[in-house]
Amino acid sequence: MSNIPTELKYTRSHEWVRTEDDGTVTVGITDHAQESLGDLVFVELPEPGGVDSEATVAVVESVKAASDIYSPLAGEITEANERLADEPELINQDPYGEGWLFRMRPADEGAVDALLDAAAYTEFAAEE
């Protein structure tokens, strides 16, 4: 069973979301997602700027296939994890840590609460 930290929020497209002290959120893909994708070889990082909820903002590619990454919230992307350009394997090695994808400032801070909690995501991932 993959690791699903209880303090994070999740999407049905397998992103995780962590609210930081300054009100921004950090986004990555879950352990379950990196496991099913396999070894990642390329990450197309998001551009800073405004995005809608569920907009395609990045792409991660394994040896075999490309997968879209969606913005979990509407808001403004402020920063991408530039290390992933040369070290996409960080996502496989540490999906909730050094493998984070981007940071964003949500348009509505309360919107995070509407995302899945760990229990709901665990159930979703198991059924999929």
């Binding site: 396999g38 070894d39 040896v63 075999k64």
Partner: peptide
């Protein structure tokens, strides 16, 4: 079998 626990990259 598309891959084993070693993973595509290491298997290659």
């Amino acid at each position: 079998p598309v891959s084993y626990p070693l993973g595509v990259m290491k298997e290659h």
